[in-house]
Design a protein around this nucleic acid. Sequence first.
DNA 1: TGCCAGCGTCT
DNA 2: AGACGC
DNA 3: GGCA
Length: 715
Amino acid sequence: MATIVKDKEAFFRELERLEYPSDGENEDFSGLVHLSRKRCECSPSISFTPASDIKAPAAPPSVRAYTEPLLASSGISEVSTEKEVTTSEQSPTPAVTRSTSTDVMPRKAKTTRGGRFKRKGRGFRAFDIPEHRKILKGLVFYYLPNDDRTTLRKLQMQRAREYGASRAREWNDTITHVVVERWYTYENVMKHFKNKPIPENVALVDSNYPLLCIGARQILDATQTRFRVRGAPVPGKAKESSPAREPSSNGSLPIKPAKAKRGYIDTQSTDDEADTELFEPEVDEHLEDEQIIDKLNQGRDALDDVIEEVQAIKDLPIGIDSADEAAAADDDETSDSSDAGPAKKKRKTIGKDDWQQNFVCMQKHDAQSNSENPNSNTIAILQQMLEFYKRTNDQWRILAYRKAISALRRQPRKISTRLEALAIPGIGERIANKIEEIVSTNHLRQLEYATNSREDKILKLFTGIYGVGITQASIWLAEGYKTLGDLRLKIKLTHNQRVGIDHYRDFAQRIPRSEVEEHGAIVRKAVQSADPDMQVIIAGSYRRGAPDCGDIDLLITKPDAEIDYIRTVMIRTVIPMLRKQDFIKADLASSSSRDGSKWHGACAIPPPPPKSDNKWENYFTPTRPWRRIDLLFVPDAEIGAALIYFTGNDIFNRSMRLLASKKGMRLNQRGLYTDVLRGPQRAKINEGRLLEGHDERRIFDILGVPWRPPEHRIC
DNA sequence: TGCCAGCGTCT
DNA sequence: AGACGC
DNA sequence: GGCA
Ligand SMILES: O=c1ccn([C@H]2C[C@H](O)[C@@H](COP(=O)(O)OP(=O)(O)OP(=O)(O)O)O2)c(=O)[nH]1
Ligand SMILES: [Mg+2]
């Protein structure tokens, strides 16, 4: 389609011309930099997969049947005949101590003579527990969140397993306990279960429960307050027949009878379908994905090339070497060494009141026509640097590049030298040097070894999935996954990720301005059929006048209305209506009906009404692409602040908000507040007092920012 | 050398 | 709480 | 990465 716009082309351009370096030697693994960096900085709990374990990625460790009984994992049998059984008999809690300190487990320890530390996949196998001490035997846990993506949770699951519990990954009749993370609220739980009540004989406990049972060596009363999920109803009154849940040494908790409450199980069948589908590729509701994976027919575009390329390398091993790689990748300055002198930028000493002039929101920012920008070539190169850094965890560097590029873009003349560049606010020593290199050599050396690695391409592919960020993409990469097909078949995806993969192509497309208007009209019609006084304002990049948009941002409001009213109408009436019209295709994030202010999903322009006399024509009518759509519910009192927020762009917003905070105020999507007290560091102590929320222009005024129409907020 | 926006939703 | 998204 |  001709609507593949520059973003996407730029995104994939350099991928297309790449051939694969045959030297495994100087491979650049910078795509993994942030993993190790992150690990060092803050999270000692990430167990880093040694390179030797991912050299053979053909069968990633996490590929298992969903229904696999946890006790059946091979690690157990390997270990169970060992002497450790008796060892653990002597010291009752070795498994505890060890598994909670797994983080510092030396990697080399993994294969000492079939001994204690068996590696199974990504987890360490711990000691076996003597049969009579498996006090959780017979219990079936359903965990929330229902995954083991967190090191801590994984270890906790493993512990429960060692003590005899089994884990149900999917809902079923044998579940005895729903084990919920402590920060999970009851509302979260209900949302997960789609508001269907949890059967009475299934206990709802927090994640302390298994641990304390183990500690107490008996099954504890699951109704104790200390195990209650935050916000959960107090079981005191409805306690009819369940004082039976007292400690029972024989471990006979009430086991759920085979007959299930149909309604409840039925709602789970949605998930079941999705999971089944993973193993039954012939289901082709997701034709789009099949196109991606298999490159069936259809005109090629840039995306095909990425996919093909990534598939081509999928059998090549990925190695990660020591942390030097990371370190090396970090000091990548080419010209830094010589003039290490601070070379302070000589800014004109501006009037003391003009410090705020350096905020981007203080200036006008047009859309710039790319072709005629004198620095377009430099910008394109720096943009590649930015795109590369987006695949790292280095958010501040990313921010700096965005600002620098933005600053360069609005220069009226070509910037050729380091000194010229240095004079521009937002461009410092290092980027100035890069600009000079780019202009003089038409090229940036860093980019060659930064952006062309296979790893980087895979990260590009994965982070392109809606719902997948750099963290998850890096983990998958480290585990050896390389294609969208890998992910679909072998990974437990979140709902959003599944939608994101199934509609990878669609979501990567920009949306023509005219189509955004179509969407707006459809929603407006539905909204006003529910309440003629309600308004739909197309915001986001559309409101800034963009010729094409990444998604559709709609602000829903009504004069004099409160948020509760708007939300209720939308959630209860309008959205169901649009779903029924087959306009709304999927939910991605939705407010509960009691609070919240947004709904996010996917939609598509419905096909034209069938022409009764020509079925063939109908048959060949192409289906329109799925689009991401974002609804913001706004009470009248907040419309001004909401318009600022939802019009953006994001850099403009951040600039406004930073300016506000420098002035002792706070700006968010609801209003501008003053008298904000800020705590030790950054944390705000109080909400502040509302200054203005209704009037967009007045918020500008109070902040001292000259009014900028939306088209001038493209920073 | 510390800061770089502020918040909503899912898991 | 952390990840992801707006 | 840039800035105060
Ligand atoms: O980190 C962010 C992202 C977005 N926004 C605001 C500004 C933005 O304009 C609006 C809508 O977000 P979206 O992601 O849709 O950006 P956009 O400006 O509409 O651009 P695009 O064309 O990519 O949708 O939400 C923020 O304040 N912070
Ligand atoms: Mg948008």
